[in-house]
Every structure is written in C-alpha cells, then in structure tokens.
Design a protein around this nucleic acid. Sequence first.
DNA 1: TATTGTTATACTCTATAACTATA
DNA 2: TATAGTTATAGAGTATAACAATA
Lengths: 162, 162
Amino acid sequence: MVPPDEQRVGSGPPWVSVGFTLSQLGLETARQFGRITGQFDIEPRHFAVMSAVRLAPDQSQQGIGDGLGIPASTMVTIVDQLEDKGLIERRHLTSDRRTRALHLTAKGESLHDAALEAAKAQEARICAELEPHEREQLLELLGKVRASLGVDATRLPDPAGG
Amino acid sequence: MVPPDEQRVGSGPPWVSVGFTLSQLGLETARQFGRITGQFDIEPRHFAVMSAVRLAPDQSQQGIGDGLGIPASTMVTIVDQLEDKGLIERRHLTSDRRTRALHLTAKGESLHDAALEAAKAQEARICAELEPHEREQLLELLGKVRASLGVDATRLPDPAGG
DNA sequence: TATTGTTATACTCTATAACTATA
DNA sequence: TATAGTTATAGAGTATAACAATA
C-alpha cells in the first residue's frame, strides 16, 4: 500500500484555538507515526491490529475489527498482509470452525516490541521541550478536553479516519 | 474468568502517551468540525479556502492553493463548488488575463461569518471543562509540542480578541 | 435462519499529466 | 518557453453487498 496522503489544510481561524491546534498537531503526530511504522514495513493500522491482538489473543478477526472500528472486509486485507509477512496467524477454533482466532507469531511479537520502542522514542521527541511536571499537566488538561469531546479513553483512533 | 485488563477495551500503547492522545483528539476534533461545516453545506477545506481568500482577497487561485497545500487541479474543484453555491467569484485581472483572482460574495461572507460563530461555539464546548487559566496553560504547553513536532505556528491575527 | 469470514464491486477521492490561453 | 487554469484519467482506498461455510 501507499503512504498516507500529504494533504494539509493550513488556514486556521482568526483566533487562538485549542480545536485547530489539536487538529494540526494530531495530524502531524499521526503522520510522523506513519513514518515510524514505515520503518518496519507496516502501516499504523497494522500496528493497531497487532496491539489489539497482543492485548486480547485468540479473539476473532471481526471481534478485533469491531474494537478498532474497522469493517470486516478491510480486516481481511489487513490480516492477509500481516499473515503474508509472517507476523500473525489465523487459527481455527475447535469450538466454532467459522471463527479465525488471531495471535502473533514470534516474529510478530519481536517486530511489535521494536515498533513500541520506536514509538517511545517518538514520545520522547514530542515531549522534549516539556519538563516532567509539564508533561503531566498537559496530559491532565488533555484529559479534560477528551471528556468534552466525548472520546473513549481506551479506544485506538480509527486508522482509516472513518 | 475476567482477565486483569478487561477494562481496557482498545489497544493503545501500554503507557500514557502525549502522541497517541494528540492523534486521537485531533482526529475527533476534525471530525466534529466536519459536522459543523456540514451544517452550512460545505466541507472543512471549503471553509479553509474561504478563510484564506478573506484574509488575502484578489489573490490568484493557485496562490491560495499553494498556501494551503492544495494542488491546482483540486483547487479547481473546490472553487467550482464554491462558485456554484454563489459563495465566491473568479475575476479576471486586467494585468494578467490568465489568473483568476478570488473574492468572496456577500453571501459567502455572511456564511463564513456564521461558520466562524459555529466554530467558536465548538471551541467553547471543547474547553468547557477548562478554567480560563487552564486553557492558557494548555495552549502554552501545546506550543512547546508544536515546536518539537516542527509544525509552523499559524501567523493569523486575533481580531476577535479571544 | 444467523453469523464468520471472504470476495467482488462500485464509489469516492486524489494527484499526475495533457491541454488551453495567455504571457 | 513559461505560467494559470482546466480537463481527463488512472490509481488507491473504502465500504456495501453478495457468497461460502458453519452454526
């Protein structure tokens, strides 16, 4: 597949806006994370699926997809790609032969570990100008904004943007 | 029967991350802004173009597009749509008959005014849980993150005073 | 009959490149 | 020859719906 599109909309409102700033910084953060996953030859959504599978192994493919807001037909494509790379495996459950329980391979786990390390390095770069207590403050303030936006604290952003 | 991390439905990083939070909140903010512009039968990019045109009237179509990172052929589509709605006009400059100088119609200006008001209402909702000094703090901290991310600050004035 | 996974398809969106008219 | 705008088109990505196997 192809790297995320490069379109940006750079004109904000004529006042200092939390909303516009969040959109701007969120988009750039996601873009940079896309470059990070790219170094491991995967996209952010592959990383998201691998994270979800690791957190809840042997769940069904559509179950994982539902948790991430990814439609079933798209999940097939994503898991196909991960399987082609030897990062994930589909298992048939004995109880219900329709479902394909997902789990990471050893290779998948080590790649996910490495990508996690790279993500931590990104986090460090993003927060480079913040004192530790400022970072805590920022997270606390963003928590209040999160509540106002009605965003569930536990769910990954939909990598498809829909 | 219930695993320890049953509460964690999604699969974000196992540490509290500024980057992940920014992606999440930025995406949701943009989504909600899309619904706001939708109430005026336009998309965020139409609003962005109208804002840029209002800020720099009688600039060329491609000049506006360059400032927003929108390719020339896409600008044609956007300006076509705005023109069809009677919100914008293309003028031929006497000096160079190739360029189409853009300016908002009266209808375009009043729609843009109304959309700005709606955007301010969104900003108020987003910041509803923040004390005024907390909002200032948040913007200051995001400014430091902005620098680390390498995102240019918007150099737009603040005529509304807020 | 309902559900999981898969496949096929139609639709949208975007950007590249060709084309025009001016310069 | 170069540039502003336009048009045509091909490509990627997505989601809807049909289909197969199993329950």
